[in-house]
Design a binder for these strands. Structure first.
Length: 618
DNA sequence: ACATTCTAGGGGTCATTTTG
DNA sequence: CAAAATGACCCCTAGAATGT
């Protein structure tokens, strides 16, 4: 159905498809009509031819570029393009339509696009007005689904310009994330195409070749693309330009990338530790040498200084002693002379003696000064020794620092390793919770653990709509590193049917395990749109405990039409009871009881084959 | 009074990969 | 190369509950 957004289209939203032209990369900028202001309503006749020639030229250029780079790949691309063009007679797939949208915005923002959007939306209105029977696809199909130019465009982009394709895929993906696009982008399809292209074995998208008429779904998608382009063509274009320039590298880190980054970090740390170890060894050697040198030096120096000091002191002492002795002797002699001589004589003698005394004192002072000088010299030497000691201390401190750093780095590396190991073990401990295609003939398979989780929530009466988001939210919270595919609402409902069958089987097993059956009760019910009787069994378990079980009896009882007499109903019930007990019924009677499910299936198969016959297919 | 959401299903198309 | 397996996604019916 048309959304109100189409009716509510205004100029401020819609006319902007072409008026925002981004800067294209220099390699292709000149070959596309994107540069400059594109006029939506003017010179519509001249542009297509020009663009076609330009596209051809660009194609030739890129072909030449490819062939110069690698011949086989260019051949493969050319072959792919040929295959694509050869297959262009049939309907486009959804993938193509989605790609078309972005590529149209990116490459042809001119009047053709506007015309296409107008046509699609007008025809949609007509379709709604006239109804599905009365509406006919426009005769001019190119207007509705422009195959010529656009298809070539798509083919060329898909086969020769991978970066454009990737950018378009990114834009679509972003649109899905932002809620601009109502459906989910088949990103897997696009990535598969890209992978095929890179491997050189691209066969083009599958087509609905057997269909004679276009499916309404495709038309619906076309309308959505047109709406999207009219609503947010500008944004798409801007985003495409930015992504295209960044070459679509804004992808989330995968586990492998994280692991490789971790390994690189580890290597870096190891290298650091190695260099530090070398440094440490060097520092230790240097310190050893310094230590030895300074030790011997200090020893030598201090020994020398001590020796000198001792000598000086001894010298000084000896000198002092000699002087004192001399002075004493002189004094004694002068005293003896003093007694017999005159005062004047004694006066002159006294003066002489005083002079001598002063001389001696001066000598003594000089000796002590020399001594002090010698002391100072030794002190200097000591100072030097102390300095050497201090140097040694510094070197030792540096060495300690280096060693501590080394230890820290080693601990860090060990911690990283431990954390990595822990993460791995945690991941190993988690059950697989993401759908994979490796099992069961390539079909997607919901992992068993996820099934069990869904069953559990269903059994606890969780609303089916909430089950998938619940599981995903809990896994994101508890184990954010773990891959978990969120079960869709649809599959939850299907699992609900599955679980009811599982429950019936479990009940049947318990009935089979009963030691004895006390009573049966029956009630009418409907299952798979087929009337049947549910069976209420009361019995005794092997342990002697009472047990009440409810079986659907779906596969045990035939349809009970309203006209069935009470006698026949009773008969049927007793037969069913007997078949459940496994006694009292002959094989022939059991064979007559065709399971309703089987009848229903057969009816479906018959109806299907009839319809196939009508269509003329075997 | 009307819109939306949920339940309980039936039924179909599509993409993808393995298998016969 | 066709068949098979399988979930994703889609549409439809019909009634009940809930919200505006």
């Amino acid at each position: 159905a048309m959304s109100p957004a189409v009716g509510g289209y205004t100029a401020e939203h819609g006319d902007g498809v072409g008026d925002h032209a981004p800067q294209r990369p220099a390699t292709r900028g000149s070959s596309t009509p994107m540069s400059g202001e594109a006029d939506l309503h003017g010179h519509s006749s001249s542009v297509p031819a020009k663009r076609a020639s330009e596209a051809e030229a660009a194609s030739k250029r890129s072909k030449a570029k490819c062939s110069s780079a690698s011949g086989t790949q260019a051949d493969a691309y050319a072959q792919c393009g040929a295959e694509w063009r050869a297959a262009s007679g049939s309907m486009a797939t959804d993938t193509e339509v989605l790609m078309l949208g972005v590529l149209l915005v990116a490459r042809a923002p001119g009047p053709e696009l506007q015309e296409w959007i107008d046509t699609v939306l007008r025809e949609e209105q007509e379709y709604l007005r006239l109804g599905a029977e009365a509406w006919v696809m426009p005769a001019k199909q190119a207007a509705w689904r422009p195959k010529g130019l656009v298809h070539m465009l798509v083919a060329r982009c898909l086969t020769q310009e991978l970066d454009v394709l990737e950018a378009a895929a990114c834009v679509m993906h972003a649109g899905v994330r932002q809620g601009q696009v109502a459906w989910q982008l088949p990103a897997s399809v696009l990535s598969a195409h890209i992978a095929q292209l890179k491997a050189g074995r691209f066969t083009g998208p599958k087509r609905l070749g057997s269909k004679r008429e276009g499916s309404p779904r495709l038309a619906c998608e076309l309308v959505r693309v047109a709406q999207l382009l009219r609503r947010s063509g500008k944004e798409l274009l801007r985003e495409f330009a930015s992504i295209y320039e960044a070459r679509g590298q804004a992808q989330a880190l995968t586990m492998a990338e994280v692991a490789s980054a971790h390994a690189a970090e580890k290597l870096k740390l190891e290298a650091e530790v190695a260099t530090l170890t070398v440094k440490e060894k060097r520092a230790a050697g240097f310190a050893r040498i310094c230590k030895a040198r300074s030790k011997s030096r200090v020893k030598r120096l201090s020994a020398k200084a001590k020796q000198k000091l001792k000598e000086n002191r001894q010298k000084g002492k000896a000198m002092l002693k000699a002087m004192r002795k001399e002075a004493k002797a002189k004094a004694a002699s002068s005293r003896s002379e003093l007694g017999g001589q005159s005062v004047s004589k004694s006066d002159s003698k006294l003066v002489k003696m005083r002079k001598q005394r002063d001389l001696a004192r001066a000598r003594a002072r000089g000796a002590s000064k020399r001594l002090a000088k010698a002391d100072a010299c030794s002190m200097k030497r000591l100072e030097r020794a102390r300095k050497a000691e201090a140097e040694l201390k510094e070197v030792r401190a540096e060495l300690d620092d280096l060693q501590a750093k080394c230890r820290r780095e080693q601990q860090k590396a060990a911690g990283e390793q431990q954390r990595a190991a822990e993460a791995l073990s945690r991941q190993d401990a988690m059950p697989a919770l993401h759908s994979s295609r490796t099992q069961s003939r390539g079909g997607l398979e919901l992992p068993f653990a996820l099934r069990v989780l869904v069953f559990g929530q269903l059994a606890r009466l969780t609303p089916p709509r909430a089950i998938g988001p619940n599981i995903a939210a809990v896994v994101r919270c508890i184990a954010p590193w773990h891959r978990c595919s969120e079960p869709t609402y649809d599959i939850t409902l299907k699992l609900r049917s599955e679980m009811s069958i599982v429950g019936e089987m479990l009940a049947a097993r318990r009935v089979a395990e009963l030691k004895r059956i006390i009573s049966f009760g029956f009630d009418e019910t409907t299952k798979y749109q087929v009337g049947s009787l549910s069976t209420n069994v009361q019995g005794e378990t092997v342990e002697g405990k009472p047990s009440t079980l409810c079986c659907a009896a779906r596969s045990s009882l035939p349809v009970a039409p309203p006209s069935m007499s009470l006698r026949r109903l009773k008969q049927s019930c007793s037969r069913a009871a007997a078949s459940i007990c496994g006694a009292g019924s002959t094989p022939s009677t059991r064979c007559k009881l065709a399971p309703p499910r089987l009848q229903y299936e057969q009816a479906r198969v018959r109806a299907r084959s009839r319809s196939r016959g009508l269509l003329g297919r075997s």
